[in-house]
Amino acid sequence: MNDQERILKFHIFRYNPQKKGDKPRMVTYEVTEAPGMTIFIALNEIREQQDPSIQFDFVCRAGICGSCAMVVNGSPTLACRTLTSKYESGEIKLLPLPGFELIGDLSVNTGKFMRAMSERVESWIHDQYADEVNFDKLEERMDPEVADQIYELERCVECGCCVSACATKRMRPDFLSAVGFMRLARFALDPRDKRTNEEFYEIMGDDDGVFGCMTLLGCEDYCPKDLPHQTQIAYLRRKMAFVR
């Protein structure tokens, strides 16, 4: 572990829309780096010792819950698992994730976006019998490989990094985005979901859906869970191309 102490400079976007007359600005804070310091630790130190009004969102602080995505020196990422030691210059610039409603400072409303996304893609098993399953009996069997593959696509934590890194989303506000595609791919793969290709087409078969994607793959580059966006978008496209 590196024990050498240095002074970090955090340049942080500050703006509280709830406060009358407040204006967006960048504010610099100095923090003495500690071994193993993450942006989570540093931001809390700033809040506790320098400015108690600063807003940001952390929940699990373990890279699991997807709450803390922000733009760190130009790249959208999970702040809680980002070590300050990664930045050699000691200068760290923090901006809120673009593409989402700003709550204040580094806090954005990803929750609202993700709920709407889930409603739009109908992010649940479509099976009229799912609620009538007799749970006293043996469960329906599933190919172990298929179960593992579904899990691989379900590892998305709804952090929003892919959305903020997407050029198409910037031009088309209603673009479904990679997180939505990933969710659709997950359900399309699931034999328990009885939706037909036509039904999936209804959800994503237009320019706000999978045909609007320019495959520039900002999503794949910045997804902190390394989800296979490229292959899944290609898979959905092929699937949709057969419909009409």
């Binding site: 649940w124 399953v133 749970f135 469960e139 179960a147 593992d148 579904i150 899990y151 379900e154 699931d190």
Partner: peptide, 16 residues
């Protein structure tokens, strides 16, 4: 056991 089987019908990809 019922809880887990219900969750299976609701979409949890339990390892098999």
């Amino acid at each position: 056991p019922k809880a887990i089987r219900q969750l299976s019908a609701w979409g949890v990809p339990w390892s098999r």
